[in-house]
């Protein structure tokens, strides 16, 4: 016992003796935390880590990704909004306005200092390979005839990133979006799996999330809600316009933001750095490798984008009867 205690003391004494200097410089002078309101290993996490690595290279300070996926992202978004606006806590913000509409949490653009949008993923509609629907039109005509017969997975919460653009398509095609049985889930992977198991007739979602099961020959994408076709391996998936004759874009977006009140010089420094990173081959290749769409909007345009998101959500959620 004595010997082990001595070792313990010797070790700790050494550690205490070690001292350290303190650096003084402009922002960032110490590590920056990037809050990701989603679990480690998911899509949001992946894109955030890609950005963090390059931010670290550019700004010579560690950018640490911290995951908080609780409450479907509400807790993480709140953490970003309520952090100290000193530039040492930033975060990734994604489709958030459904929480306000569902009466779960009041999260809106005024709580953030938006810096830039870097990614947009279009929504898609998927079916089991054994489904009678071979095209989007066949599915939509059947839904138009009697939508209440079909069970549709929401690829996450109903009223979320994937459901809303598809519901807008329903409305434009003349389908009552309130009629089908909409089935929520705790994430796109579970929804897709349920579709593959035969528990659902259709599922809204995205191509990257559905990729493993699509390639395994279990699921079939019918269309993607984008004005242009996606890159390989999804070059054969028709756009909403080709499949249904409705030209529309919609899906999930991801943007970098800080808490409201972030100093303007930090916002502009981040904006410039992020733009440089976004344009780099490393970032573009990294995104392409994982089938993430890329889109760039600067700070000012991002605010306008968020306002548009809130307006269109309000309208569609009301039409769906989901607004509380």
């Amino acid at each position: 016992m004595k010997a082990s205690l001595k070792t313990l003391i010797a070790g700790t004494a050494l550690a205490v003796l070690a001292t350290a200097g303190v650096a003084q410089a402009a922002w960032p002078e110490r590590p920056v935390t990037i809050i990701v309101p989603a679990g480690a290993g998911g899509g949001t996490d992946g894109t955030a880590r890609l950005l963090a690595k390059q931010l670290q290279d550019e700004l010579k300070q560690p950018f640490n990704v911290v995951n908080n996926g609780q409450g479907g992202g509400i807790v993480g978004h709140t953490q970003i909004a309520t952090a100290r606006p000193d530039g040492y806590t930033l975060g990734i913000v994604y489709n958030y306005y459904q929480w306000k509409m569902l009466g779960q949490a009041d999260i809106n653009h005024t709580m953030f200092a938006p810096i830039a949008i870097y990614n947009v993923d279009p929504a898609a509609l998927l079916v089991n390979v054994n489904s009678p629907f071979k095209t989007g039109k066949e599915a939509f005509d059947a839904l138009k005839a009697d939508a209440s017969k079909y069970k549709i997975g929401c690829g996450g919460s109903c009223g979320g990133s994937w459901h809303i653009p598809n519901a807008e398509l329903f409305i434009k095609y003349g389908i009552d979006p309130k009629k089908p049985v909409m089935v929520p889930s705790a994430g796109g992977a579970l929804s897709n799996q349920d579709l593959a198991s035969g528990g659902l007739d259709l599922a809204v979602g995205s191509l990257p999330e559905g990729k493993p099961l699509i390639e395994a020959g279990k699921l079939r994408p019918l269309y993607v809600v984008s004005s242009a076709r996606q890159g390989a391996p999804f070059q054969d998936v028709p756009t909403a316009k080709e499949a249904l004759g409705v030209d529309m874009e919609g899906g999930a977006f991801r943007l970098v933001a800080g808490p409201k009140g972030l100093p303007a010089d930090i916002v502009s420094k981040l904006e410039t750095t992020l733009e440089k990173i976004w344009k780099s081959e490393e970032f573009q290749n990294g995104m392409k490798q994982r089938n993430f769409g890329t889109k760039w909007l600067n700070s000012k345009d991002t605010v306008a984008f968020m306002q548009a998101h809130e307006a269109s959500m309000t309208e569609t959620m009301k039409a769906l009867g989901l607004a509380k």
């Binding site: 313990l8 003391i9 070790g11 700790t12 004494a13 550690a15 205490v16």
Partner: peptide, 8 residues
């Protein structure tokens, strides 16, 4: 000493 060392 233990407290300081362990915390550090």
């Amino acid at each position: 000493v233990i407290a300081a060392g362990a915390s550090f």
